Computed example of a mutant assay.
Amino acid sequence: MRRVLLAAGMAGMLAVTACGSSGEPAPTVTVTATPSSSSAPPQDTAKDSGDGASSTPTSSAPPADDAAADTDGKKGVMPEVICLDLQAAQNKIQDNGVFFSRSEDATGKARQQVWDRNWIVVAQRPAAGEPIGEGDAVLSVVKKGEPNDCPGQ
């Protein structure tokens, strides 16, 4: 019987280890995925640490469009996301070309935002209309039902 263990990390790593009953060590495969934009397919690299054979992706992504990237690494424009739930705010930022944003507990309690739809954005950095790159958007949030200045929230 073979068992497969899957583990995923925040950086997009995936490790697959198969354990056989024959006593031989099974190969481990690690796949690293990078975020992609709508104009380029994801790029994956795979390494096989088992029997010496390696897996190589069969397709390659087209070269990045240099005209679309700002020289300062800014890829999009910060939208207005105050009073949206955290998931909707993240979606709106992604629609503007930036896929990594950060969130922080506005109460100072350092609570983790596990279920994004259960949090309301009460402040944002930078302001709407400012250019942003990956990780530049910081959203301050409170749980739904906690005091905030958003009407109906």
Rank of each mutant, 00 (worst) to 15 (best):
A68V: 04
P79K: 03
F99A: 05
A68C: 02
L139W: 10
T32E: 09
V77C: 02
A137S: 15
E24W: 02
A18W: 06
P42A: 09
R2I: 03
K74P: 06
S49A: 12
G129S: 01
L86S: 02
S21C: 04
A40I: 02
S39Y: 05
T17Y: 11
V122M: 13
G9V: 14
E104M: 14
N148H: 09
S21Q: 04
E146F: 14
G76N: 02
V114N: 09
V142N: 07
Q43H: 07
G73E: 14
E134L: 00
E130W: 00
A67E: 15
K75G: 09
N96F: 00
D72I: 10
G133R: 04
A110C: 08
R125N: 14
A67P: 08
A11H: 01
A128S: 07
P79I: 03
S103W: 02
S101F: 01
V141F: 03
C83L: 07
S37E: 10
A106E: 13
P57Q: 14
C19H: 05
S36M: 05
G12Y: 12
P42E: 02
P147R: 15
V142R: 12
A68S: 11
S37N: 08
A137F: 13
A18T: 13
A18I: 07
V77M: 04
A40G: 09
A40F: 09
P147A: 15
G50E: 09
L6D: 09
A128H: 03
A40Y: 07
A123C: 12
S54R: 14
P25R: 07
L14E: 07
V141Q: 08
A61Y: 13
A128L: 00
D44G: 00
K92M: 03
R125Q: 13
G52L: 07
D51E: 15
G9H: 13
G12M: 14
A61P: 13
A53I: 08
L86W: 01
A53V: 11
G73F: 10
R3A: 03
S39W: 05
D95I: 00
P126N: 03
K144N: 06
A53T: 13
Q87M: 02
P35V: 03
L6T: 13
G23N: 08
Q153H: 15
K75C: 05
G133S: 05
S37I: 02
G20Y: 06
F99T: 08
P126V: 06
C150F: 01
A67I: 12
A137P: 09
T56M: 12
N91Y: 12
I132H: 04
A106Q: 13
R117E: 01
P147I: 15
S38M: 11
S49E: 10
L5Q: 14
C83Q: 07
P27D: 11
E146N: 15
M10K: 07
S60M: 08
G145T: 07
G152N: 14
T56W: 09
A67F: 12
T30W: 13
G135H: 05
I82G: 10
S103C: 14
T34S: 06
P62T: 01
A15S: 09
A46W: 08
M1Y: 00
N96Q: 06
Q153G: 11
S21H: 03
D136G: 03
P131Y: 01
A137E: 12
K47V: 04
P79H: 05
L6K: 10
K75Y: 11
Q90L: 01
S22A: 10
S55Y: 11
E130T: 11
D44M: 06
A123N: 14
S60E: 10
K47W: 06
A88T: 01
D149R: 15
D105A: 09
T32H: 10
R102W: 00
